[in-house]
Structures are given as structure tokens and as C-alpha cells.
Simulated assay, not measured.
Amino acid sequence: MRDAGLDRAIDAAGGVAQLARKIGIAQPSVSNWNRVPVGRVIAVETATGVPRQQLRPDLYAESAVPDNIIDIIDPVDAARAREYELLAVLLSSPPSNALLGEIAHLRGDTTPLGRAHAALAEAASEVVTTGVEREYFDLFVGLGRGELLPYASYYLTGFLNERPLSRLRDDLAARGIERVENNFEPEDHAGTLCEIMAGFASGRFPASEASQRAFFEKHIVSWMGRMFADMERATSAKFYKSVGTLGQVFMKIETESFTFAN
């Protein structure tokens, strides 16, 4: 039986098929959901307008993530959370037309991150939804496999579902972060890891700065920058070329920040 949050999303999208199309996945996948998987919450929220607190109140309860979160947590952490959330949704599914419109209004500045934001905004203003859906398919899905495999196990061992995934699952279990039911994507997917880091930064998943640094150094820093570099150079990448640039810049900032803090 579907939960209330998923029912709201399906109604807002105009049906299961429309919801699947809007977030760029196959209709049978959505049909098999009992609730919105954690890795799809932001994409579904963006596509349907149903707030994440209604989609998954167990993860985004008002008491856990207040609307005035920016006033409660450090502004730098709030900015980090937003950056990770943006990367998470772009890695988890092709952006909807509404999200592309929001990205097109990003403002840049003269910093490396500001220039990356400006380039992403320009790319979003030029692409059409059907084009970026095809691009996402070619990059991450493909006929057999996509041009990129955005998993820690693959980048660190050359194979999927290897020891890096096992170590990650052990760490997530120790932190009380559970894999959502009916989400068949391995937890070492780059989008899932960015969503977890967003949770740390926002305070949704309690973690000290030292704990965040340990998680980042163990599960992210050794490979995700390389993945974003590969994305920037990928033959299929047009809009996602700018996503690759943003990811590289942000990973460098995170690495330097944790290093200096240490």
C-alpha cells in the first residue's frame, strides 16, 4: 500500500506514468514504490511541488529540519547543504523543467564556485528538458550501461558492489541511517552520498565536524572529484559538463575546508 506522501506526489504529477517521466525513471520503478525513496525525495519535490516534509515526514519532520534552518545552523553549513542537495538531485535523476528554471536564475561571482554557478545557470537556460533527459540516459543509464558509473566501488576497485560499498553500509548502520525500502540503487551512488552529506550539513543527520570529515575522507574524497572530472570530459555531456565543473570545484572546497579545520 502506498503511503500518503507518495499518493500526493502521484496526484500532483497527474499519475504514476507522469511522475516517472518527470523524474526520469521507468514507470515500473515508481509503480513498485510504497513510499518515495530517500534518493528520490528532492527530485519528486522539484517535479511535483509536494514538500519533502509531506513526501517523507520520517526523514524531514518539521522538528528535525525546520523551515528556518538557515537561521539555526551556521550559514556556511546551510550553503554546503544546498550545494550537496543540488548535486544530489542532478546525479539522481535528470532535472525537471521547473528545476532547470530555478538553476537558470543562479547568480555567479568572481570566485571559482561563483563562476561554476554562472556556467551551470547558462547551461540550464539553453537546454530543453527532453535533451537533458536523453543526456542523463546516455551518461548514467545507457543501453547496457552508461558512459559513467557514478559509484564508489567502481571508481576504487573497477567493479560494482565491492568492499567500498560494504564499508559504507557498515558506517551508515552505525550512524542509524537506513536504506529506504524499494530503493534498489547501491548506497555508494554519488547522488546518495551527496544527499547524506547534505543531511550532515543541515543537521538532519546528527554529525560533528570531525565525524563529517571522517565520512568525507573515507567515502568521498578518494574518488568523487575524479568522477566529476570524467563527467566534464564525457562525450555525452553538454548540460552535465557544467555539473562536472561545479562538482570538481565544490569537492576541492570541501577537501580544503576539512583539511584546514583538521
Results as ranks from 00 to 15, higher is better:
Met1Gly: 14
Ala4Lys: 14
Ala13Cys: 11
Gly15Ile: 10
Gly15Phe: 10
Val16Pro: 06
Ala17Val: 13
Gln18Thr: 12
Ala20Asp: 06
Arg21Tyr: 10
Gly24Gln: 07
Ala26Asn: 11
Ser29Phe: 11
Ser31Leu: 14
Trp33Ile: 06
Val38Glu: 15
Val41Ala: 12
Ile42Ala: 15
Ile42Arg: 15
Thr46Cys: 11
Val50Glu: 03
Arg52Glu: 11
Pro57Met: 07
Leu59Asp: 04
Ala61Gln: 08
Glu62Asn: 09
Ser63Asn: 10
Ala64Leu: 05
Ala64Ser: 09
Asp67Thr: 11
Ile73Phe: 00
Val76Ala: 11
Ala79Lys: 08
Ala79Val: 06
Arg80Trp: 05
Arg82Leu: 13
Glu85Gly: 09
Leu86Phe: 06
Val89Pro: 03
Ser93Asn: 15
Pro95Asp: 04
Ala98Glu: 15
Gly101Pro: 03
Leu106Gln: 01
Arg107Lys: 14
Gly108Trp: 02
Pro112Gln: 05
Gly114Ile: 05
Ala118Trp: 04
Ala119Gln: 12
Leu120Phe: 04
Leu120Pro: 08
Glu122Ser: 06
Val132Glu: 08
Glu133Trp: 02
Tyr136Gln: 08
Leu143His: 13
Gly144Ala: 03
Arg145Glu: 12
Gly146Asp: 05
Leu148Glu: 04
Gly158Ala: 12
Phe159Trp: 13
Arg167Ser: 13
Arg167Trp: 14
Leu168Arg: 02
Asp171Phe: 06
Ala173Thr: 07
Ala173His: 09
Arg179Leu: 14
Glu181Arg: 13
Glu185Trp: 04
Thr192His: 13
Thr192Val: 15
Thr192Lys: 07
Ala198Lys: 03
Ala201Glu: 10
Ser202Pro: 05
Gln212Gly: 05
Gln212Phe: 01
Phe215Glu: 01
Glu217Leu: 10
Met224Thr: 07
Ala229Trp: 09
Met231Lys: 01
Thr235Leu: 09
Ala237Asp: 02
Tyr240Met: 04
Tyr240Lys: 02
Ser242Tyr: 07
Gln248Thr: 10
Phe250Glu: 00
